[in-house]
Design a protein around this nucleic acid. Structure first.
Lengths: 197, 197
DNA sequence: GTCTATACAGCGATAGAC
DNA sequence: GTCTATCGCTGTATAGAC
C-alpha cells in the first residue's frame, strides 16, 4: 500500500507535466493514473472530479507566481532606475525561456477564466498585483526624485502590458530580440521624464 | 432535403458561435447537429472529422483577419503620423469590444498552435503580417520625413506587442483605459524622433 | 448526393468489494 | 486506500435508406 501524501504529490506533479504538454482535455485521468501506476478511481479518492484536480493544480502554481514577481525596491536609487527596470525584464525573459511548460499551463487557465469566474477572479488579483509591481517601481522612482511625476499610472500599465506579452510571444516561438524590445519600452516610457543625466 | 451549401454554411456558423462560447472540447458534434436540426453523422458528410471542422473554421476566420488589418498608407503625411497611429489602435479597441467572440475563438487557435504545426505555421504568417503593418507605417513615416530613422524595427515590434496585448486584456475584462495606454505607447515610441513640431 | 441508424472504443464518474 | 465493474456520454466510423 502507498503513502497518502506521496500519491497526492505524484498526481499533482504528473498532472502538471501532462496537462502542460497535451492540455486539460487531451489528458485523461486514465493516462495520468497509468503514468503513476495506479488505477483511475484512485485519483477520485484524492480529487472529487477532474475539475477539482485542475483547480488544485491552479492553486499550487499561483503560489509559485507570487514568489517570482517580488522586487526589492530598496535597491533602487537615482542612478539605477533604468537598470532596475531592464533587469526585471531580462530576468523574466530568461525565466520564461527555461520554463515554457509553466506558462503553457498558465495560459490554459487564462482561457478557462473566460468561462469560469473562479479562475477569472483569482487571475484578476494576480494581474492587479502584476500591475502594482510596475506602478510601485515608478512611484518609488518618483519619490526618490529619479523621474518626474507624469502619467505614472498609464506608463506603468504600458510597461506591464509589454512585459506580459513578451512572455506570451516567447511561447509562440516567434523569434524576436525580446531583450532589445524591452529596453526600448523602458527607454521610451522614461524618455523626457528622467531628472538630470 | 436540404441545400448543400446552406447546410455547410450553417455548420460553420453554428460551430463558430458554439466553439467561441464553450471551447472546442466542451462543444460536441451532437450539440452542433442538434442546434441546426440535423443528425450528428450528417456533419461527417461535410467534414471528415471534428478536427477537420475546426481547421475549416480556422481558414474561414483567417481570411477575415487579413481584411481587418489593412491600412492605407497613402493617407499618411508629415502632420498626421501620430493621428494615424492613434486611429489604428482606437479602431481595433472598438472592434475588439464588439467582437469578443471572434477573439475568444482566435485565442483557442493560438493555444492549439503550441501543439499543432498546422496552426503554428499559419499563425506565424499572420503575426508576421501584423508586425509588417506597423513596420510599414513607421518606414513610410521615415520616407515622408515625418520621423527620424532610429530603431524603427524595434519600435514597430514594440507597438505591435502593445497593440496585440490590449486586445487580449479586453478579453479578460480587465478594466483599463486602453485608448490612453495606446496613445501613451505611440507618444513614447515617437518621442524624440519626430521632425519639427 | 444527402443524410439516418447503428455500432464502438474511450472518457469522466460512481458503487461497492477488498 | 485502492481496486473491479459499470454507467451515460463522446468522437468516430460505416452501412445503407432515399
Amino acid at each position: 500500500m502507498r503513502n497518502k501524501e506521496e500519491t497526492y504529490k505524484q498526481i499533482i506533479e504528473t498532472a502538471f507535466s501532462m496537462f502542460s504538454e497535451k492540455g486539460f482535455d487531451q489528458t485523461s485521468l486514465s493516462s495520468i493514473a497509468a503514468e503513476i501506476g495506479i488505477s483511475k478511481p484512485a485519483i477520485y479518492y484524492y480529487f472529487k472530479s477532474k475539475d477539482e484536480l485542475i483547480k488544485s493544480l491552479f492553486d499550487t502554481i499561483v503560489q509559485e507566481i507570487q514568489s517570482i514577481t517580488y522586487i526589492d525596491l530598496k535597491e533602487m536609487n537615482t542612478t539605477n532606475v533604468k537598470q532596475t527596470l531592464y533587469h526585471v525584464g531580462e530576468n523574466a525573459i530568461n525565466h520564461q525561456k527555461k520554463n515554457l511548460a509553466f506558462n503553457q499551463l498558465f495560459n490554459q487557465y487564462i482561457m478557462l477564466a473566460t468561462r469560469d469566474s473562479y479562475y477569472a477572479e483569482k487571475l484578476a488579483d494576480i494581474q492587479q498585483e502584476f500591475f502594482n509591481t510596475f506602478h510601485d517601481m515608478l512611484t518609488n522612482a518618483v519619490e526618490i526624485k529619479a523621474i518626474k511625476d507624469e502619467n505614472i499610472l498609464i506608463k506603468s500599465q504600458l510597461l506591464a502590458l509589454v512585459f506580459d506579452n513578451i512572455t506570451n510571444f516567447i511561447l509562440t516561438n516567434m523569434n524576436l530580440d525580446y531583450e532589445r524590445i524591452w529596453r526600448e519600452a523602458v527607454d521610451s516610457v522614461l524618455r523626457g521624464i528622467e531628472n538630470h543625466e
